[in-house]
Write a protein that binds this DNA or RNA. Structure first.
Length: 559
RNA sequence: UGCCCGAUAGUAUAAUGGUAGUACAACUGAUUUUGGUUCAGUUUGUCUUGGUUCGAAUCCAGGUCGGGCAACCA
């Protein structure tokens, strides 16, 4: 074990420090956390950070984590989202102790509300939403209490029961906590606990027409489950005193809330509302469009759970806002894919090459490693013949001196095959290059090279007679603005028009005919790819997960 | 002009009163049958002003800057 690794092990984030202290002091024998999504959209990579944190903490310290759906607003929620969330959490590699729903606690929550009414801490308010907002004051001016706050306990009890019984229409009445209309914390100005919604709930059906607000559901749900560490994002900090107030007045298990900074990524939006809009307005093909930073999108794009967990590990857990560079996510996926991806050759933009000194009709099978990083990955055979395809961009008629590829009179190696020399450039009447005539060095066969020739460049290639056609989907960032949160424009105006480029007819080596959905591929010198679900009998479709780092592109930029 | 958070290289994070370190990014170079990988190296940092202290990124005070809070959303 190296010195630096020891150091790294010693370094704990602030939540780990809190948990360790709580365990050490005997405050808790073991910890329980929860991941509490609202089933109103698909999970994104920001949720992945929360998932890794909540499940990771419990895993590290021998505790449990519940998956609890915060389903207190029936009009936005749906079982489609419940299903997707469950499968995404599992795909990320985590297993919850219990699958729970805030709606499981509706009866208990109602009883809690009755308890608070009896204690004089809650009242039924008939004001309209506008009136309530007006009476709330502003951050710099205190609010005012209305006459409804003076209702008796008996009156409140009866009215609340009538609300539950469906006697009133949506918005006609609310139940409010009686706290402090002059509090500098806006959340203390008699927050709404229950509102009337005659809406069908995805789990409780039509049993209820009143639903608890987040503030009156979350802390108590935590408490019911005996959550020891309730971890949420920074914007809930002002809610914490209220979270504690309800628990104290109800005199129930004291869960505690801790806040960390949500994950932000450059060139991305991290808001369910915005992601939903991208789907609804068809800027993308769906929640699992490979350009989306949803878990489903990343999965389809070819990201591995390992790489996403690695990112969440690396970004850290702190209380200050941050914006993580996409290059870190790309580093994480390249690091993993480099280890596991099977190497294959695919020509995106073909240029025909005829090996003039290779006999017509002849062919041979060449051996190549499936992954040079992993000797256990095995080998495959690649056909070689007189007619090949190489990448158009790998040939230049007039080449700069650092161009280590093909040019008239120049030699390159064909990966796992022979060294070839470009003898002649064939053009059509319009002057376009149609093919290259090259000669190969028979003694330069890969693995048995006795030619003594050293070449700077190695190209990928595909034998023409056995090439198979496939479609390639090349993805780029969905947005053009680095910091989307700081951007004033409507976010849809920053969409990258080139976020998807389709190569409809690329040539692949025959081994890809049997490509599998779970396998990851590196198309040599091009990038990492995976099979897309749109693949059919007639057509193979591959998604580009991420490009390879491109040193040549950098060199060119320098001019 | 209220209240609550926060501030360490380009980005992110560590140092818990005692040598400012790590990763990503960038840049050099070596290796390479992927201009990939790998390896070696370089550049860049404690918001500010005071105070406490032998000693401050760390503690205290003022300021500056950034974020959040006035949904019958979560």
């Amino acid at each position: 074990m190296t010195e630096t690794l020891k150091e790294a092990e010693k370094s704990r984030n602030f939540l780990e420090e809190i948990v360790e202290e709580d365990l050490k002091s005997g405050k808790y024998q073991s910890i329980t956390t929860r991941f509490p999504p609202e089933p109103n959209g698909y999970l994104h990579i920001g949720h992945a950070k929360s998932i890794c944190l909540n499940f990771g903490l419990a895993l590290k310290y021998g505790g449990k984590t519940n998956l609890r759906f915060d389903d207190t607003n029936p009009v936005t929620e749906d079982t489609e989202y419940v299903d997707s969330i469950k499968s995404d959490v599992q795909w990320l590699g985590f297993q919850w102790a219990k699958e729970l729903y805030a709606s499981d606690y509706f009866d208990q929550l109602y009883a809690f509300a009755v308890d608070l009414i009896k204690k004089g801490f809650a009242y039924v308010d008939d004001s309209t939403p506008d009136e309530i907002a007006a009476q709330k004051g502003t951050p710099t001016e205190p609010g005012i209490r209305n006459k409804y706050s003076e209702r008796t306990v008996e009156e409140n009890l009866q009215l609340f029961e009538e609300m539950k019984a469906g006697k009133y229409k949506d918005g006609e009445k609310v139940l409010r906590a009686k706290i402090d209309m002059g509090s500098p914390n806006m959340h203390f100005r008699d927050p709404i606990m229950y509102r009337i919604k005659h809406a069908h709930h995805h789990r409780t059906g039509d049993k209820w027409c009143i639903y608890p607000m987040y503030d009156f559901a979350h802390g108590q749900s935590d408490s019911i489950e005996q959550i020891t560490h309730s971890i949420c994002t920074l914007e809930f900090i002002p809610h914490r005193p209220l979270y504690e107030w309800f628990i104290e007045k109800l005199d129930i298990f004291p869960s505690h809330q801790y806040e960390f900074a949500r994950l932000n990524l450059t060139y991305n939006v991290m808001s369910k509302r915005k992601l939903k809009l991208l789907v609804a307005d068809k800027h993308v093909t769906g929640w699992d469009d490979p350009r989306m930073i949803t878990i489903a999108g990343l999965r389809r794009r070819g990201y591995t759970p390992e790489s996403i967990r690695e990112l969440c590990d690396r970004v850290g857990v702190v209380k200050r806002d941050s914006l993580i560079e996409m290059s870190l996510l790309e580093f994480c996926i390249r690091e993993h894919l480099n280890k596991i991806a099977l190497r294959r050759m695919v020509v995106f933009d073909p240029l025909k090459v005829v090996i003039t000194n290779y006999p017509e009709g002849q062919s041979e099978m060449l051996h190549s490693e499936d992954n040079p990083e992993d000797p256990n990955a095995g080998n495959r055979e690649i056909p070689f013949s007189r007619e090949l395809f190489i990448e158009k961009e790998d040939f230049m008629e007039v080449a700069p001196k650092k161009f280590f590829r093909l040019a008239p009179g120049q030699m390159v190696r064909l990966k796992s095959a022979y060294i070839i020399k470009c003898d002649e450039v064939i053009k059509d009447a319009a002057g376009n290059i149609t093919e290259l005539h090259c000669s190969y060095i028979p003694e330069s066969k890969s693995g048995a090279d006795t030619s003594g020739i050293n070449v700077k460049g190695t190209l990928h290639w595909v034998s023409a007679p056995t090439a198979i056609s496939c479609e390639l989907r090349l993805y780029d960032r969905l947005f053009q603005v680095e910091d989307m949160l700081a951007d004033d424009k409507p976010f849809t105006e920053s969409i990258n028009p080139n976020s998807l480029v389709i190569v409809s007819n690329a040539y692949a080596e025959p081994a890809l005919k049997t490509a599998k959905f779970d396998d990851r591929y590196q198309f040599l010198r091009k990038g990492y790819f995976c099979l897309d679900k749109d693949t059919s009998e007639e057509k193979l479709v591959f998604n580009r997960t991420v490009t390879l780092k491109d040193g040549w592109a950098k060199e060119q930029k320098k001019g």
